[in-house]
Design a protein around this nucleic acid. Structure first.
Lengths: 127, 127
DNA sequence: TTTCGTTATTCCCAGTGGTATATTACGCTC
DNA sequence: GAGCGTAATATACCACTGGGAATAACGAAA
């Protein structure tokens, strides 16, 4: 820690930055958030809540709750879950889930731009 | 549930909304946030951390930590604290603190507008 | 019918962040 | 010097959140 010099030699007197978190609320509270979207993407990748959770170092219990919360609040389910059967079952992302992912990333990217703009507007970052 | 008509006659099929929290980071992490700003305003109003905390139903300990955190990270202190003396002492908001308050509210208001814009842009709210 | 890996569900536990409480320091006023 | 109300600080407690482990349910395939 306490790295004295940044590589550039450029002085950095002020180190204030705009930060934030965003999400989309539904009937029961949080509906879509960063972690939930990553989880959906991992489910798409692995076809399994168990593996998706493991890949994020998230407990299965937590992952399951997030998935269930999204499915309850969505107009149409984001994932289809199969318990038992070939390979023990699995979980598949639906078209509706795909839409949710791209919707959130749109929101998220806009927000990142917003933060950068604000930082300049408020005079927190040079230039 | 499944309320068909809202009072206006305008249907409200979806109940999704864009939400978020913003703050300004400093050297030690969070520097300015909603709660901290409200706290500063209450200190300005009451001239006392104790009373300010009480008015927000926040513990004195927590309030003191927030104030101390802001003072440590600010270029110039946001409040001047007097322990002992007339009335037992007190805490006074500095000019620098005033600036912080208006800076944050600028940020905050922009953010509220951003959220409204996004909600429309993403098609979550009608109109 | 057994096997298998997943989903689904429950119970207990630890870490964390906050509150509540108590104590001390402080310095003006009387 | 005593009293007062505040700041400053330490300690104990409490609630919430999420994690981990254990177990049951499931259904196709062998």
């Amino acid at each position: 820690m306490t790295k004295k010099h940044s590589g550039t030699g450029r002085q950095k007197r002020t180190s204030f930055s705009c930060r934030g978190r965003i999400w989309i609320d539904g009937k029961e509270g949080t509906f879509l958030g960063y972690g939930r979207i990553i989880l959906l993407e991992r489910i798409r990748e692995y076809g399994s809540i168990t593996k998706a959770a493991k890949s994020m170092e998230m407990s299965y219990r937590h992952a399951w709750e997030l998935v269930d919360s999204m499915n309850r609040q969505a107009l149409k389910p984001f994932v289809e879950r199969v318990s038992g059967g070939k390979g023990g079952g699995g979980t598949r992302l639906t078209e509706e889930g795909e839409k949710a992912i791209s919707l959130f990333w749109k929101f998220y990217n806009d927000f990142q731009k917003f933060l950068e703009r604000e930082e300049k507007r408020l005079g927190l970052s040079k230039k």
